[in-house]
C-alpha cells in the first residue's frame, strides 16, 4: 500500500512538472485520469514491488550518488587523457568483481554504477559476480570497485 502511494505521488509530480498547467481544470482532470489509469494497470499487472518502486534504497542511496559523481569525474579525466593522447596506452582487461548487494535493485545499481564510471563497463551480471571490462590497467582497480559494491550494499536498507 505504501508503495502504491509513493507511485501515485511520483506520477502526479511528473505529470505536473512536464505539463506546467496548474489552473486548467480540464487538463488537471486528464492528468488525474492518466495517473489513475497507470496506477490501475500497475496494480493489475502486479508489478509494484521493490524493483519498480525501489523505496528501500532511499535515503541511503542519496549519499552514494553524491560519492559516485566524484568517482565519475575522476575516471572521466583518466579516460579523456587516453582519448586525447597521440599514442593511447591502452591495456584492456577483463576481470570479475564480487556482487555484494542482496536485492535485484541493488545489483542493478551496482552494475550501472560500474558502467557509468568511464573506463569500466559491466559486460555480464551474474548472481555472485560481475564481469567487467576496463580500458587500462590503472582503471581496472578491483579493490575500488569492490568497495563501491559494498557501499551499495550498505545503502540498501531493506532486502527482499
Amino acid at each position: 500500500m505504501g508503495r502504491i502511494l509513493i507511485l501515485v505521488l511520483n506520477l502526479v509530480v511528473i505529470w505536473l512538472l512536464l505539463s506546467g498547467y496548474f489552473d486548467k481544470p480540464l487538463l488537471l482532470a486528464f492528468g488525474a485520469a492518466s495517473v489513475a489509469f497507470t496506477t490501475w494497470l500497475a496494480v493489475r499487472a502486479r508489478i509494484i514491488d521493490n524493483d519498480s518502486v525501489p523505496s528501500g534504497l532511499f535515503p541511503g542511496i542519496l549519499g552514494y550518488w553524491a560519492w559516485l559523481i566524484f568517482e565519475i569525474g575522476k575516471a572521466n579525466i583518466l579516460v579523456a587523457r587516453q582519448a586525447l593522447a597521440v599514442e593511447p596506452k591502452l591495456s584492456p582487461k577483463l576481470f570479475t568483481v564480487p556482487n555484494p548487494p542482496r536485492s535485484s535493485v541493488g545489483k542493478a545499481t551496482f552494475g550501472n554504477s560500474i558502467t557509468l564510471t568511464p573506463g569500466t563497463v559491466t559486460i555480464d551480471v551474474r548472481e555472485e559476480e560481475i564481469l567487467v571490462h576496463a580500458l587500462t590497467e590503472e582503471l581496472a582497480d578491483v579493490e575500488a570497485i569492490t568497495a563501491m559494491g559494498e557501499r551499495v550494499a550498505r545503502a540498501e536498507r531493506r532486502q527482499t
Partner: peptide, 21 residues
C-alpha cells in the same frame, strides 16, 4: 574516443565520456 579506440569494447568507454560528463 569512439572513433580512435582500437576495438569494440574499448569504444564503449569513449561513449561513456559523452554520456556522463
Amino acid at each position: 574516443g569512439i572513433v580512435r579506440f582500437p576495438d569494440f569494447f574499448s569504444r564503449l568507454h569513449g561513449a561513456g565520456i559523452t554520456d556522463t560528463a
